[in-house]
């Protein structure tokens, strides 16, 4: 693929990846959040496939397709099912209001940019230069995890972090070795499943999935 088309397409994929990540902060509707997560998975898969095409690496393209199936297909499907079973559609009241969270996300983007400098300096290719995008999504995922009070929002936060790490892996080194990648994907899938089962139990035990209810254990 020609360099002239590769760089804009890569940037576009990373832009979509970032946008889907920060829009999660904006929306209160959990179904929409899951949709955004699926969109982000697609953007990630597109970036990986693009890297594979650019390097003419069939294995990387196949891995990209696999990433897409897991992160844009399977995980969102699981979350939609959990959501349909729960009947809880909205994030009630996040600990930090939406306007402030968006401004915090802006600050986090700056932080990610600063932190990623040594990584870029080591090898300033177009792909490595997009690493701050992945780190921004990582920090946004953390922020979602800490400030949202629905169980499903926390799961999304965790998966955002995971997407971001996968993106970093592909942008810096075109991915970790296949056996590790498979293990990681399996772990993530199982973790999501475990969290889904725990959500069901939580609803049975607490009558809801508001994490503020989790106050039984303390010193």
């Amino acid at each position: 693929m020609s360099e002239g088309l590769y760089v804009p397409l890569l940037d576009l994929g990373c832009g979509a990846f970032l946008l889907a990540g920060v829009l999660v902060l904006w929306r209160r509707d959990l179904m929409a959040i899951v949709g955004l997560f699926a969109l982000q998975g697609m953007a990630l898969a597109a970036v990986v496939v693009l890297l594979g095409v650019h390097q003419a690496d069939a294995e990387l393209i196949a891995v990209g397709v696999g990433v897409g199936v897991l992160r844009a297909g399977l995980l969102p499907y699981l979350m939609r099912r959990a959501l349909a079973a729960s009947g809880e559609g909205r994030e009630t009241q996040p600990l930090v209001n939406v306007a402030t969270s968006l401004l915090v996300a802006a600050a986090l983007a700056m932080l990610a940019y600063a932190v990623a400098q040594p990584l870029i300096r080591l090898s300033p290719t177009p792909a490595t230069q997009a690493v701050p995008v992945a780190l921004t999504v990582l920090l946004v995922g953390f922020f979602v995890l800490v400030t949202r009070r629905r169980a499903l929002s926390q799961v999304v936060g965790f998966l955002l972090i995971d997407n971001a790490i996968t993106a970093t892996a592909f942008l810096t080194t075109s991915g970790v070795p296949l056996v590790v990648e498979l293990g990681v994907s399996l772990d993530v899938l199982l973790a999501a499943l475990v969290l889904q089962v725990l959500t069901t139990r939580m609803r049975a035990a607490f009558g809801g999935t508001d994490l503020d209810e989790l106050r039984e254990l303390h010193d």
Partner: peptide, 24 residues
């Protein structure tokens, strides 16, 4: 249930950071 939830969320996220460290 509460303990299990906290355990999975905190440990999975923490360990995810370690994976980022491995990637780097």
């Amino acid at each position: 249930t509460e303990a299990a939830w906290k355990y999975v969320v905190i440990c999975s996220v923490g360990i995810a950071l370690a994976f980022l460290g491995i990637v780097v």
